[in-house]
Design a protein around this nucleic acid. Structure first.
Length: 312
DNA sequence: ACCATTTGACCGTC
DNA sequence: GACGGTCAAATGGT
């Protein structure tokens, strides 16, 4: 939340801000661009509600879809480079040295957290892996498991991952991906069991931490010494989503994304690039069956009388 | 019988 | 020599 407010502030930029922006990392610029785009879309949406006669329900849905896409993109970028965004320049220099070392091996690390009691089997990220080794690692209580893609020999896929149970939280597993899949095997099911989101943290059901572990979907560039902080990142992420949601997630209805996609507009359903892109974003982990969708009552907004939107 | 996992041995790097 | 990563024989499950 703090992160986003900082960035939002930057969107109301002065000249000096613009100068600073020149020095920003490319990723940061992209995030800001996405947020600026989102802001613009939100303004257009607001105008639409203020002058309902000049906007159709369909165009509102398109606006909302684009708005969501902007925030989705920004979120994705934040999760990719949140560490860098938070750091001071000195810190960046220091950490870049370590990062370079890690990047040699193209190491990417994600952290998931589950609490179903079937963690080992639920670490399925959609790819098929074969365990080829396990080692006790110096300084760690828990051994590290070594996995390679099942198609290593049949398709020459060099993907490898390492899985290690977290010491701090036994329900957490640290997964390090090395090399990416070249087997063209698309992730099968990213099941809710494998990693899922729970509204009531600490209560029944799996504990939220990361929605997908597949490196193609959500990959956190986290240095090994900073793995634990990735939990905070995800918590932040969840907070940020709440910030941009337009409802109380606890009372929301289930958002039917497929319906939305079909109903946005007959002309955009199949041909429009934006629709296709949205589908590709949402179908992967469709919130249709996920009651934690942060934007789930946007659809309802469109059906509400306009007056009811504004609390006086 | 086949396949996946386990586990001690081996190898390369520091 | 310590350590992390990989190999491959042994083992277990179907």
């Amino acid at each position: 939340q703090k992160q986003v407010s900082v960035i939002s502030h930057k969107t109301q930029q002065s000249f000096s801000d613009m100068v600073m922006k020149e020095e920003m990392l490319t990723e940061e610029k992209l995030v800001i661009n996405e947020l600026e785009q989102g802001k613009e879309l939100a303004n257009r949406l607001m105008n639409s509600f203020r002058n309902p006669s000049s906007f159709s329900k369909d165009s509102n849905k398109i606006l909302i879809s684009e708005l969501l896409l902007s925030y989705e993109n920004a979120m994705a970028m934040l999760s990719l480079d949140k560490k860098t965004l938070k750091r001071s320049p000195e810190r960046i220099d220091q950490n870049n040295k370590k990062r370079r070392l890690l990047e040699k091996k193209k190491t990417e690390k994600v952290k998931i957290c589950v609490g179903t009691g079937q963690e080992e089997t639920c670490l399925d990220d959609g790819y098929s892996w074969r365990k080829y080794g396990q080692k006790d690692i110096h300084g760690y209580k828990n051994p590290r498991g070594y996995y390679r893609c099942t198609h290593r020999f049949t398709r020459g896929c060099l993907a490898v991952k390492q899985v290690q149970k977290s010491e701090e939280d036994p329900l957490c597993y640290e997964i390090k991906y090395l090399e990416s899949h070249t087997c063209n095997n698309t992730p099968q099911s990213i099941t809710k069991n494998s990693v899922s989101v729970s509204k009531e943290e600490g209560n029944r059901g799996p504990k939220l931490l990361v929605t997908e572990e597949s490196e193609d979907i959500v990959v956190k560039h986290v240095k090994s010494e900073e793995v634990m902080s990735s939990i905070e990142d995800v918590d932040n992420k969840k907070e940020i989503f709440r910030t941009f949601s337009f409802s109380n997630p606890e009372t929301e209805n289930i958002f039917d994304w497929k319906n939305l996609m079909e109903n946005i507009s007959p002309t955009t359903t199949s041909e429009s690039g934006i629709t296709k892109e949205l589908s590709s974003v949402f179908v992967v982990d469709s919130p249709t069956d996920d009651h934690d969708s942060c934007f789930s009552c946007l659809e309802n907004i469109l059906d509400l009388p306009h007056d009811s939107l504004w609390i006086k």
